[in-house]
């Protein structure tokens, strides 16, 4: 049963039309973009017959491929680190009390609510001041470190929600049944919070693959990610190559959504 009473008559019609328009608004641009990526016309928004040329150009473009490969490396590296740190942090916050807990909790929230631009400025100045001290040159290291800095928070929020929904007594039951602390974690806690960890990891992956602003500020010459590379191309002058690259990025996003929905499905059937 739905919680709210069902509207009737004219208001119901209006509401359903509104919803239809919202979905049209959401999906028409995406579908049009996909269509135009096959268009044989240098003007990106005008149909000029079917072609696969732009995808061919993408495959042949050395800098595009390099940027794509960079993006993947950074996304994977930052996801792994942020999943480990974020999960440990989530467990600490949900299961323990310790000195500095409130400060940690607040600090963990900040990267989520701080505007991209501000965070970009923060990382730029930080690496400008400390690059010498840390021995880092702008590129893979600076981008990955920055991505981890915001991903930890998102991972921990997702994992925390999962831990909060888990009955604490399951761990006690495991210990009561002769499991050591580690065994209780390994055989009970970990499998039960795994959907949260996977969900958090997918979110971290998506955020890393999405980011333009922060990456642009900490990327070095000749070392950039695909979104920043594409963003640069758009500002230099649009070519249909961008349509093709965009569709590839779009498909990557879709694959991640599908995965995360699948994970969520596992989540709901598990707790049933």
């Amino acid at each position: 049963m739905s919680g709210v009473i069902t509207p009737r008559g004219a208001s119901r019609t209006l509401l359903s039309i509104n919803s239809l328009l919202v979905f049209l608004f959401f999906y028409a641009p995406i579908i049009l973009l996909i269509i135009f990526s096959f268009s044989d016309n240098r003007n990106v928004g005008v149909w000029g017959g079917f072609t696969l040329d732009w995808y061919g150009e993408f495959a042949d473009s050395q800098p595009t491929r390099k940027a794509l490969w960079n993006s993947i490396q950074i996304a994977v590296a930052s996801t792994i680190v942020s999943v480990v740190l974020g999960t440990l942090g989530a467990l600490a916050l949900e299961r323990f009390t310790f000195r500095g807990k409130q400060v940690f909790d607040a600090l963990l929230y900040l990267p989520i609510i701080i505007p991209d631009v501000t965070m970009a400025v923060m990382m730029l100045l930080f690496f400008a001041e400390l690059a010498g001290v840390l021995g880092l040159s702008k590129g893979f290291a600076t981008i990955t470190l920055s991505h981890i800095a915001f991903s930890i928070s998102f991972v921990s929020v997702v994992v925390r929600a999962r831990i909060a929904g888990m009955d604490e007594r399951l761990e006690e039951a495991a210990m009561d049944l002769y499991a050591s602390r580690w065994q209780a974690f390994r055989y009970v806690t970990l499998p039960l919070i795994m959907p949260g960890i996977l969900g958090g990891g997918l979110l971290a992956l998506t955020l890393s693959l999405d980011d333009v602003v922060i990456t642009q500020f900490v990327a070095g010459p000749g070392w950039t990610t695909l979104p920043v590379f594409v963003f640069g191309l758009i500002r230099k002058g649009v070519t249909p190559l961008i349509n093709a690259v965009s569709v590839v990025m779009l498909l990557a996003s879709m694959a991640l959504v599908a995965l995360s929905l699948f994970v969520q499905r596992v989540r709901t059937t598990d707790s049933a």
């Binding site: 049009l32 928004g45 996003s253």
Partner: peptide, 19 residues
């Protein structure tokens, strides 16, 4: 969940001249 840059770019394509 879809790439933010791509979603903005889609509007560039739609709103462009003769788009």
């Amino acid at each position: 969940w879809t790439n933010f840059l791509v979603r903005n770019y889609a509007w560039y394509v739609i709103l462009g001249t003769d788009g």
